[in-house]
Amino acid sequence: MHLTPHIRSAFTPTGKLRASINLGNPILANKDASGAPCGVSVDLARALAKELDAELELVVFDAAGKSVEAVAAEQADFGFFAIDPVRGEQIAFTDAYVLIEGFYLVKNDSPLRSNDEVDVAGHRVVVGKGSAYDLYLTRTLQNATILRAPTSPAVVDFFLKEGAEVAAGVKQQLEHDAAQLGGLRLLNERFMVIRQAMGTPKSRGPEAAAFLSAFVEKMKANGFVAGALQRHGIIGASVAPGREAA
């Protein structure tokens, strides 16, 4: 899509392009040795800034909910989120650029062996507050109780502290925590596929939303997203299919 002055100004009302970066999902963003944000979403943010010929400002958060709120409140001009209808009320999403699996984790001595055993009265499922898992499981769990940890990386510690029955989150984060802490295991299969997309406030208008969508499709098609996943050593996430393939 052709860049116009109107589109550029829609993305940069403060004169800078402000990217909302969520460090709560290590597949998308983390910190390098110097403490600076890095990762797939940071690479895409820099690429978008180059596309818009704008100065980039990273607005960093430790949880998905905070990152979403910043864009919805227009304290940032765009961000990186799991597609969800609740978030979509205020944010215009692109198609997904990365697919991530959500899994359940339990203690080794738990009687739970499969996902269909989770949604039972008396079971407590720990999620990161405001995360894609929180939003999804809030809609889908009928009997289990949801407990909310402050952030997604804090889920397993919160799960152990509370003595809960189940933790839910990004497969890779749960696997890492299980390996570090011991005595934990993942259940047999994913309970959801998270479609990670870019998004901008709906108030920025349809042209800005269309430009962002076209940008994501280009970054998938030209290998940029795949290269970023490889460069940052991300295992377990896959590039989402292009719009036509989907």
Rank of each mutant, 00 (worst) to 15 (best):
Val120Lys: 11
Glu217Cys: 06
Pro150Cys: 07
Pro37Phe: 01
Leu137Asp: 06
Asn30Val: 15
Ala96Leu: 01
Phe224Glu: 11
Leu135Phe: 08
Val239Cys: 15
Val127His: 02
Lys31Ser: 15
Glu217Met: 05
His176Ala: 14
Leu99Gly: 06
Lys16Phe: 12
Leu23Pro: 01
Gly163His: 04
Ala209Cys: 00
Ser34His: 12
His2Glu: 13
Leu48Asp: 02
Thr12Gln: 11
Thr12Cys: 15
Tyr97Trp: 13
Gly236Cys: 11
Ala33Ser: 10
Gly183Cys: 04
Pro85Phe: 04
Arg124Ser: 05
Ala36Val: 09
Leu112Glu: 01
Ala72Cys: 07
Lys129Phe: 10
Gly233Tyr: 04
Thr14Pro: 07
Leu17Cys: 05
Glu57Gly: 05
Phe11Pro: 00
Gly233Glu: 01
Phe81Glu: 03
Ser20Cys: 08
His232Asp: 07
Val239Glu: 10
Gly102Trp: 05
Leu181Glu: 08
Phe191Met: 02
Ser114His: 12
Leu174Gln: 04
Phe78Val: 05
Ala144Glu: 02
Ser34Leu: 11
Gly242His: 07
Gly223Ile: 14
His2Ile: 14
Val68Leu: 14
Gly169Glu: 09
Arg243Pro: 06
Thr138Tyr: 08
Leu174Ile: 10
Ala154Ser: 13
Gly130Phe: 05
Asp43Ser: 13
Ala168Ile: 07
Phe61Ala: 06
Asp134Cys: 09
Lys66Thr: 12
Pro150Arg: 03
Ala33Asn: 11
Lys171Trp: 10
Lys202Arg: 12
Thr12Asp: 10
Lys107Ile: 07
Leu112Ala: 08
Leu174Pro: 01
Ala245Lys: 15
Gly24His: 06
Arg204Trp: 01
Glu51Leu: 09
Arg8Met: 03
Met1Ser: 12
Glu74Arg: 12
Gly128Lys: 03
Ala63Asn: 14
Ile7Thr: 05
Ala132Trp: 08
Asp43Trp: 08
Leu17Glu: 00
Leu44Asn: 07
Gly227Val: 09
Asp119Glu: 06
Ala76Arg: 03
Lys107His: 09
Val60Glu: 00
Leu184Phe: 00
Asp62Thr: 08
